[in-house]
């Protein structure tokens, strides 16, 4: 018995722990490995655990419906394709107290462009693509910036650098009423947010970081809360929510209504004249 007590913590430490109880893959497909993301020390441990759980669910999403894969420019919605897509973009996570002002490395001459205005990070902010924001700022100012993340100095030479700042809002604002932060349905919504922000890693020229467009009308009129790309961040997030929603045989009617409201909101943000844009990420070669 003493040996068991000695070994059990070790097993838990190794991560053999608890299976995903509710999320059930319908495809019968083998799980892909988990997306390898690096956490900066500024991310609290409870937030890490939740992100970790989200990525575990993604690794075994098991989507059956393969339609709309073109939005992500992937061949299919297999666990492997989803993992590869996110892993290419979603590399580093920093916490809300992390200073994203960046260190000036040197002057650079970038081509002129129109950038997205990115506001200050407040406690209710859910997540932002800090790497993309710093890249756009550097491009506008003609400065090469770097950020120190978890002991690594990252030179921001592309929006694809993949540095994301997460706040408490990711775990409190995105919360289906009557559920807990670690309930699977909230993982679905957080994963959709991850994919949304990861799309801000992409694009080139005026479309670098896939900036949002000012909404000409509707609920968000005048806000940079719409997309001019049919494969922009909002459609990308929407397709992820919808895949989980369509397979959620264990969701209550209220939870399905919640996901449908989210899907409707995201669909309403795609401008009627939106077009498909190249998702190749620009990179400077200083």
């Amino acid at each position: 018995m003493v040996r068991i007590l000695k070994v059990l913590p070790l097993l838990l430490l190794l991560g053999c722990g608890l299976p995903i109880k509710n999320h059930r893959s319908l495809s019968g497909e083998a799980p892909a490995g988990k997306v390898a993301v690096r956490f900066d020390d500024s991310v609290p441990s409870n937030q890490r655990a939740l992100v970790d759980k989200d990525l575990e669910i993604l690794s075994n999403a098991g989507f059956v419906d393969q339609s709309e894969a073109n939005i992500l420019d992937i061949p299919d919605f297999s666990n492997r394709s989803l993992k590869q897509w996110l892993e290419t973009r979603f590399s580093y996570l920093v916490g809300e107290n992390y200073d994203t002002s960046g260190r000036v490395e040197r002057s650079l001459q970038y081509q002129p462009f129109l950038s997205e205005v990115i506001g200050p990070f407040s406690s209710t902010t859910i997540m932002r693509n800090a790497g993309g924001a710093v890249y756009l700022a550097g491009k506008e100012e003609g400065i090469l910036y770097s950020l120190l993340v978890g002991g690594f100095r990252l030179f921001i030479t592309t929006p694809r650098v993949g540095i994301f700042q997460i706040g408490e809002g990711l775990f409190t604002t995105i919360l289906v009423p009557g559920t807990k932060a670690d309930d699977d349905i909230n993982s679905y919504l957080r994963l959709a947010t991850d994919f949304h922000e990861a799309r801000h890693d992409d694009g080139s020229g005026d479309n670098a970081a896939f900036p949002h467009e000012k909404c000409p009308s509707g609920d968000y009129e005048g806000q940079y809360a719409c997309d001019k790309s049919t494969d922009g961040p909002y459609p990308v997030g929407r397709v992820i929510v919808q895949k989980f929603r369509n397979q959620c045989t264990w969701c209550t009617s209220a939870q399905l209504a919640n996901l449908d409201l989210q899907i409707a909101d995201l669909n309403g943000r795609v401008l009627s004249w939106a077009v498909y844009n190249d998702d190749q990420a620009e990179r400077i070669n200083p």
Partner: peptide
């Protein structure tokens, strides 16, 4: 870089 997360979330959806 922080070590891999070892805390597992208890499922209780």
């Amino acid at each position: 870089m922080a070590p891999p997360t070892v805390k597992r979330v208890v499922e209780h959806s």
